[in-house]
Amino acid sequence: MRAWAIMLSGLLIWAAHFFILYGIGEFIGDGFASRLAIAALTGVCLAICALLAAAVMRMPPRDFFGKWRMQLAFAGLGIGALAILWQGLPALLA
């Protein structure tokens, strides 16, 4: 499980972020407080992505497969972070 959690970390964070955002929009509304919460959550998720990326970089690759998994996780965090950033924009612009 841990191996999968690391490999998929960026995407898992995106998923958590997205569904919380949808929940806020659907069940709470798009008032100022909601938007503030979304902005804050987006910041937190981006920070987590950055921290995880740094941690993944520092993990010692034990063999080729281990290194491959770390690369996958790292790139996944990159895509996840971009998607999370976009996900947060509607709270500011729409």
Binding site: G25, G29, D30, S34, I79, W86, Q87, A91, A94
Partner: peptide, 18 residues
């Protein structure tokens, strides 16, 4: 509401990256 459509618009763009 526009904000909600915005979430889905953003995700629809994100899915084109892969």
């Amino acid at each position: 509401p526009p904000m909600t459509t915005g979430f889905f618009s953003a995700a629809s763009m994100a899915v084109s990256i892969p």
